[in-house]
Amino acid sequence: MAGRVAKWTGGALFAVAAVGMGAYFLHVGLAKADQTASVVGAFVGVAGLALALYGTLTTRRANAAAPIPGTCAGPDNPAAVHNEISGGVFDGPVVQSRDVHQINFGLFASPSQSRPAE
């Protein structure tokens, strides 16, 4: 219910603002309306940039502060992560990890060479 009221209120405010700006711009003329719209647009752009930066910073801080559930294995919780692979044919090593930077297993045969012909 609250979401519907917010949508209707936002739509009504937008409609009132659009009609009010149209009446103002019609009253002051096209040249003055163009200048006013440029200034208002610049302020809206700066405000939007500031809000975007604020949202980005608060999201990063919240994500950095909170650990991901189930990923903290250690002495207190040794079984926090359980990886299981079942079914299928694996022609080489299977690596399940987080934050892998460089890994080298050497050369392995292609899957078509490692399986017998059926």
Rank of each mutant, 00 (worst) to 15 (best):
A18N: 08
P67H: 01
L53H: 05
A109F: 03
M1T: 07
S38T: 14
L57E: 12
V44E: 12
F14W: 08
L107K: 13
T9M: 13
P69H: 00
R4N: 09
A109R: 02
G88I: 03
V94P: 02
A17G: 02
T56F: 11
A18C: 09
S114C: 09
P69E: 00
H101F: 11
G87F: 01
A42P: 14
R98G: 11
A79Q: 06
M1P: 00
G41Q: 00
R60Y: 09
A64N: 09
G3L: 08
G70M: 01
N77R: 09
L13M: 14
I103M: 05
R4M: 10
Y24S: 09
V39S: 13
S86E: 15
G10M: 01
G41F: 00
R98L: 06
L57F: 07
A12T: 13
I68R: 02
V39C: 14
G92R: 04
G55H: 08
V39H: 11
S114G: 05
P116L: 10
G20D: 02
D34H: 13
H82C: 15
L30Y: 05
M21H: 04
R115L: 01
R115G: 03
P111Q: 03
L57M: 07
N104W: 13
L30Q: 04
S97N: 12
S112V: 10
K32Q: 10
A62P: 00
G29E: 00
P69N: 01
T71G: 03
V19D: 02
L53K: 09
I68P: 05
S114M: 10
R115P: 00
S38P: 09
V95Q: 06
D76S: 12
G20T: 05
A37R: 07
H27M: 12
V40K: 13
A109N: 07
N77A: 07
C72W: 13
P116Q: 14
L49H: 06
H101Q: 11
V89N: 14
A12G: 10
V89I: 12
G3F: 03
V39R: 11
L49I: 15
A37D: 15
N63R: 00
Q35F: 14
N104M: 07
A33I: 07
Q35S: 15
A117H: 10
G88M: 02
V95S: 11
E118D: 10
R98E: 07
V46R: 13
A42I: 05
T9R: 09
A6T: 04
A73F: 01
P67L: 03
L51I: 15
G29A: 00
R98C: 05
V94S: 02
A47C: 06
G10H: 02
A33M: 02
G20K: 01
D34I: 14
T58E: 11
V100Y: 04
V81F: 00
T59I: 00
A50S: 03
R4S: 11
A62S: 10
S110E: 14
G41H: 03
